[in-house]
Amino acid sequence: MMDMPPKELHTLRVNGEALEVAFWPHRTLLEVLREDAGLTGTKHGCELGECGACAVLVDGKPVLSCLQLAVECVGGQEVTTVEGLAQDNRLHPLQEAFADLGGSQCGYCTPGFLVTAKAFLDERPRPTREELKEALSGNLCRCTGYLQIFEAVEQAAERMAEAGRAEEQGR
């Protein structure tokens, strides 16, 4: 019934691995990740760029996967989703802090917050509260009132800085 062009086989780089997926050019990264790659950790709350739940990183930058055509990510760009934050079975400091400090209640907006916060801390390891609010202003959370999220990111920043210092000294 629908006038669909043929699907094409593409290679996406997701969480450090190459994924061979066949999809239509009108598919968004969100759809391909969730429906074709089985990576359902990335959520969706509006599919119109109005909530931030679907945020993922493309080459380290936070983008909305609902407004990103997947076909524009097949040129070797590195896509990072919430599933790619932990190293082996070790949670990322942001994940630890969100879990410990109440940064996640229902958990639905959490993946979007986590990847956005990761991109932000990678660029700004010791942010002020004001900078943090700005960086997370594209992610809506209906549960927490954000304050425990801010604290979680700040704790993670501290832990990451400590780990960085320890690594320096270890060298």
Binding site: L39, T40, G41, T42, V82, L94, A99, G102, S104
Partner: peptide
């Protein structure tokens, strides 16, 4: 204390209805 379902929620492992296939 970390909530008992905290880990699932920060790893994307919590399975919401639309995640089911």
């Amino acid at each position: 204390r970390r909530r008992v379902d905290g880990r699932a929620k920060v790893t994307g492992q919590t399975r919401f209805a639309d995640d089911l296939v």
